[in-house]
Design a protein around this nucleic acid. Structure first.
Lengths: 259, 259
DNA sequence: TCCAATTTCGTACGCTGTACGAAGATGACA
DNA sequence: TGTCATCTTCGTACAGCGTACGAAATTGGA
């Protein structure tokens, strides 16, 4: 039960799920042979799409092999002839859902270009919050992920950045967008779990908080937390949280390239 | 099995785990009564510390109620007299491990002050990567989390920012540090799972990648990805990745306050 | 001494991913 | 037209998870 995997003898084998990820773009160099067994009742894309729908509707935890199979009236184990295992399915979902977002033309204005990269990522993560949980499983190098990365690099191309800096600039923009999306998700989930809005939670726990925090002093947190709480509560547009940090980041990047 | 919880009749009740979180700072206003049953064999702190050790050593997935109980020779269900459930335990772990990091005095230099906030967060997440997985469970308002937030606000205090901007500035710094730590973790985990270093993985999959990507064109990603790959591979100090973005963010913040 | 309160914990349930192997369907070849 | 190799389908089973429940054990107060 150690977390350290032992990879004893076998030489480095190519990752089998790479071909699955790129299945649509593989140009068959030779039609090898007609398949012999029964035809598959559904397609890999249908399976992945169903899993995405499930995740969108009920969260990633609801994406169980049994639940997906049931959607098609298939036996649970049948899914394993489409997909090697659940983790591989999650990677396929991530890449497939990434492909659904069309990449708009990049504006000429640099500032708008960088902002677009962050906003696109943020909006996508808001629409499919489970992506935040999948990212740990390394959805590397799928075709749609690769397209996305190329597009992001185009947005920072021609600014005079080094190759390394281009990669890092994209990382800052995308990373920050992700962290904002994550904190929004936490807030939403907290409301689901407790069954109260944030304001209601504070009201319900006001006395308790005052009691337990009686011995501690939070002059700044008290003042700032209140201000932030009221602002976020009133904010009809949640992307507002994104804009402040994004403006600072873009300022910093532009100052760097104009140096 | 819906993900939407129903909270039918009961009025808004205070969160019971708040008292557990703040257990050390609660000043008992009256010693209510001596406990009657058998004495508890261990303390809540010991349970939480054991869970932290387990998470540090074998990852969050290894933190099972059975495994923790076994460490103390207790029955599994006994843990539920210390902690209401596993999720609550994770929150306790997060706050407790946060308390282990001593908060250094803030330097006078603004730039160093902001960098310190990000670096402290980053180093902590590197030492306890499972924190990145726990954050979804909203480790709100524990005593050590509150201390941390107050300290972070001190770092951005006196710059002329509004209350809201202070909160958002901290969010940018901490969010970015988290996203860097997350991408480092992904890389490390990928190496564990595949049993190869990143370089070995690329070597093993070079032919396959060339084949599947034959129809797609990634001029920038190819060039930049290679540069980034070589740089990160050679980088002995992984915090290097943090520094570029951090410099841009701090530049942006300083430009904002000096306006 | 006896009881009420409290902790301990064995058993059980429903859930998960998935290993295994049998059964069924299909195309290729003799 | 069989016959067989190959592929898909899927029922069963297993280990592991969180935890509900209720009985047993332990303790202090009356």
């Amino acid at each position: 039960m150690s977390h350290v995997p032992d990879q004893p003898d076998q030489p480095d084998q190519p990752d089998p799920s790479l071909r699955l990820l790129w299945r649509h773009r593989i140009e068959v160099r030779e039609e090898p042979k007609a398949k012999r067994g029964p035809k598959q009742k559904v397609s890999v894309d249908e399976v992945v799409d169903a899993a995405i729908d499930l995740a969108d509707a009920e969260g990633l935890a609801a994406v169980t092999m049994r639940a997906i199979a049931q959607r098609f009236g298939l036996g649970t184990m049948t899914l394993y002839s489409y997909v090697p295992n659940r983790d591989a399915l999650l990677v396929l979902m991530a890449d497939q859902v990434t492909g659904r977002t069309v990449l708009p033309d990049l504006p000429d204005d640099t500032r708008k270009r960088l902002a677009l990269v962050a906003h696109l990522q943020h909006d996508e993560l808001r629409a499919h919050p489970w992506l935040l949980e999948v990212q740990d499983v390394r959805p590397w190098l799928g075709p749609n992920m690769s397209d996305r990365y190329e597009w992001q690099l185009q947005a920072v191309d021609g600014l005079g950045l080094t190759d390394l800096e281009m990669d890092q600039t994209v990382a800052v923009l995308v990373g920050f967008a992700g962290s904002i999306a994550r904190s929004e998700l936490m807030k939403r989930r907290a409301e689901e779990v407790t069954g109260m809005t944030e304001a209601e939670w504070w009201a319900a726990n006001y006395d308790t908080l005052n009691e337990v925090m009686a011995g501690s002093h939070y002059p700044l947190a008290g003042r700032v937390g209140t201000a932030a709480g009221e602002a976020y509560q009133a904010a009809t547009d949640p992307a507002r949280e994104l804009d402040y940090g994004l403006a600072r980041i873009i300022d910093g990047v532009l100052a760097h390239v104009n140096r």
